[in-house]
Nucleic acid binder design. Sequence first.
RNA 1: GCGCCCGUAGCUCAACCGGACAGAGCACGCGCCUUCUAAGCGCGGGGUUGUGAGUUCGAGUCUCACCGGGCGCGCCA
Length: 563
Amino acid sequence: MSILQRLEQIVDARLGAAVRRAQPGLNGGVALPAASFAPARDARFGDYSTPVAMQAAKAARTNPRAVGEALRAALEEAVAADAELAGAVTAISLAGAGFLNLTMAPAYWQSIVAQVLREGADYARPAKTGRKISLEFGSANPTGPVVVVQGRSTAAGSALANVLRFCGNDVTVEWVQNDAGTQSETLGRSLHARYCQLWKPAHPFPEDGYPGDYLLPVAQALLARDGDRWLDAGEAAWLEPLSIFARDQLVADQKRDMHDFGVDFDIWQSERELHQQGRVQQALEALNDGGHCYERDGALWFRATDFGDDKDRVLVRSDGRPTYYAGDTAYHWEKLRRGNERLIDIWGPDHHGYIQRMKAVVEALGHKDALEVLIAQQVTLKRGDEIVSSSKRQGQVLTLREIFEEVGVDAARFFFLSRALDSHLTFDLDLAKQQTQDNPVYYVQYGHARIASVLRKAPAQLLERARRAQDLGLLEHSAELALIKRLAQLGERTRAAAHAREPHQLTVYARELATDFHHFYTECQILGEDAALSSARLALCLAAKRVLATTLELMGISAPDTM
RNA sequence: GCGCCCGUAGCUCAACCGGACAGAGCACGCGCCUUCUAAGCGCGGGGUUGUGAGUUCGAGUCUCACCGGGCGCGCCA
């Protein structure tokens, strides 16, 4: 257990007594908050701070400063009685309305460097919880290449998956192929038209078909496999096989796009298969058995209004075909049956109205509050001052592949990741491409490359000495301590990003980390006359390199040794 | 009309469960390379957190109303 956790434990254990001291007449139980030491807002207040006394005072309706003072005295006593803690903490103070502040000794910070070197990639990684979480994102109709919005949801989704895994969860990353229903048929008809055009260029293209060039190679592939077999056949004969053929080709492309973008899914769920395997039927039966369905106008309805939705929803149309909603219900049921405690979906902004009904059906299946939906807002593409059209209608959408091939995967991922999912994102292609100081990706990566460069310059013997972490007591420059304090935040920052489902917080931390390193690099000569000091600073470089690499890995961005 | 999201410096955005004097980057001005990568560092000006009330020891954060922007409200997906 870390020193900070021990201190929190002591505070938790003594909080009740502190409250009673402040409020002697208190009878009955009070729900006491748990202490959590966070980095102090301002160095004047010390290094760590907790408002727990104020929170407890509120619950007990008593004076926050009185609770704080009793708690401060109790903590001081406990720290003095323990050699390890006494060496780590130099001051405990009460400030403001009742903040409990800690000032840590340089020896404490120096020990963090040793800890990072010892634990490496596992530094700040908590124990496995075994908690199973399904994360679904990117999912789209297999009706074309992966486009810009999916760049955003997959960059964010995969980073969220990484950080949830880092925090000890067992995460399954899933993509759904919406390969059933009318869109799939439209795809089949579009392909058939392209295929016929290979013989007769004047062959009409369906009015509601999918334009764009991406079906041309699919039609060629179909020709290569089946020759003229479908040319004069009736629709009933070719509709399903061509829909499936197109799906298989396009899904293969989507997989490749995603892989090259650095995202590999554990599951590519076909909606069509859920129907064929009887999963949809089973899910509907489960709902029906629970008494959540009824028939009206020849259709089967789900009583969504029993679970907070605006209106009841159709599961099976009066003509007997199940709705998309029925398929998605079956899919979410599947995810629950696989043992996931938590289902997180990332959807596009046009699916807002769908959230409540999906939560309703998950609750009806007995898993209230298991589903969380994150909405990834629209992305506007720009080149300098010019907005790049992303109208799907014209069939001229800029694909995700074109974007990451133009600006690079690292820059693309960082830009997609850099804003909270629920705020609008403007992606400036020119800025992302610039290899200048304006580009935050390179700012962070440059920190890593700079360290690698110093390490290459360092004599092997000195590097060996640095790895033994024997000279850390010499690290007391303000720039050194500031950098170490930032390294020490890795745990709480990753936990915050995971807990809030806000992977963009990683980009914020990465920049802060790089800033502290660049400052240290400017202020402190690493390789110098004094071997002991050089060894200490090299050790700090090794630790900073490790934490930068961990943060970049979580974001799915490379950590280069040279730039 | 109803529901959801957003509104913070000139611009783009942060702000941990309600916590201390609301912070960064860009842009603008000034300075720093005979030493480890200047893709870097330092200093400076900039704010009634859309408006008005409420809850609280304490509100950018919670509640209500209003203003502005986006999205949704199908036996479409």
